[in-house]
Design a protein around this nucleic acid. Structure first.
Lengths: 219, 219
DNA sequence: GGGACGTTTCGGTGCCCACCGAAACGTCGC
DNA sequence: GCGACGTTTCGGTGGGCACCGAAACGTCCC
């Protein structure tokens, strides 16, 4: 009964919540770096990561002598955002206030592992306009004409099948769907690799480069 | 810092989680009834309700000598559902398993205060088809031709303005948007008043009556 | 192989909080 | 008014858990 409380208990600890918020930024982080960022001993972080992994909220990859943690699935990011919408400081009537101080976040940001913000929404619109995607009742479907994406080095057939290939994700600031799922992650990778956008070191915000302004449909 | 953990802590207690799950069913419940349902002393429930109210998760109305609690806003229900999607038993690949035992829930159920399930989705589709609503990028907008709803005793102008008049709510079992917000709540009220659907006493599941099968677009 | 580095395990300490019962408070009905 | 009922406040008890430091473990680099 009430597994809900068990999951919530994992997020109820300040340190674990901070860890997950750091992971929300996108890139996988090793335990030691997390310890510095949230200001606790490495041993403490280690214990937390073990619990989060056991619960399936994060996955931990061995990478050399360090172990990098990242969110396990998009639902985790969605739950985190749904919870922060309940926070007292978040009583914005129509959805801005908290973001106003962060203009960069409105322009372009990564939502877990895919593009969000105005750029993300514009990209989704563009893919629909080009016929690559269809929007059917709030969910995206891939259309045959999506093959032009292979131009960007995205192999649709080769995308991991563990998650929905494409999924609509209601954007936080724009209140419009953008492309999440494996395709969304692949698109963000392409944008980073081609230097259209760059991660700002503080986490989830992205900077659109000159190159990106020329290449991306929204600029 | 990290208000997320504070909110999560409210949901992390088994008893409080049970209380909120009961409230998810829809109707407001007095403290004593909650005590019986979750199996703790009334004094314990009283303490929990005070905390939940202080945090703005529920509102408590005085009604005679009893105090009835209900969820404060749709975001609370959304966060609860987002969290239960993380529960270990909920590892359904494409979104069924947990509901399979509850065929009634798939057919029609109330999601916080509006119609959901197959009926709820069909209703939303129907309203779009009739031109009452438009679906613009994942959010519903009210169109002029929505006036025919007044036939059902729904006064669009008289709906409370505190919340979005109409809002798309991604349905749990159907993965399709249905009508939430004040209009969604009003529609559920109409359906209950005209005996198209009846609440089953166990909470959120609804039964579609013969009358409803004739009147509702989906049957 | 040896030493540095990142990570984990373990024991011990301390705090926070859910629970109940008893008593006080407020409301309803006669 | 006076009981009955629903609810709240308060003190005391108990359990669970986050935290750290020290030591063990595994991996990389020279």
């Amino acid at each position: 009964m009430s597994e809900l409380a068990d999951v919530a208990a994992l997020l109820a600890d300040r340190t674990r919540a901070r860890i997950l918020e750091e992971l929300l930024g996108g890139p996988a982080l090793p335990a030691g770096a997390l310890a510095v960022r949230v200001g606790v001993a490495p041993s403490t972080v280690s214990g937390h990561l073990a619990k989060l992994e056991a619960a399936g909220l994060i996955v931990v990859r061995r990478r050399g002598r360090r172990r990098e943690a990242e969110l396990a699935r998009p639902e985790v990011a969605e739950a985190l955002e749904a919870l922060s919408r309940l926070a007292p400081g978040d009583a914005r009537p129509i959805g801005l206030r908290a973001v106003n101080g962060h203009a960069a976040l409105r322009e372009a940001r990564s939502c877990y592992d895919h593009l969000a913000g105005r750029i993300g929404v514009a990209l989704a619109d563009d893919l629909v306009a080009r016929g690559a995607l269809g929007l059917e009742g709030g969910a995206f479907v891939v259309r045959d004409s999506a093959h032009f994406l292979e131009m960007y080095g995205i192999d649709l057939a080769g995308l991991p099948r563990r998650r929905a290939v494409v999924r609509a994700c209601a954007d936080w600031t724009e209140r419009r769907p953008h492309v999440a799922g494996a395709l969304g992650a692949a698109l963000l990778e392409v944008a980073l690799a081609r230097d259209w956008v760059r991660r700002r070191d503080d986490g989830r915000a992205l900077t659109v480069t000159e190159l990106g302004r020329a290449a991306l449909p929204a600029a």
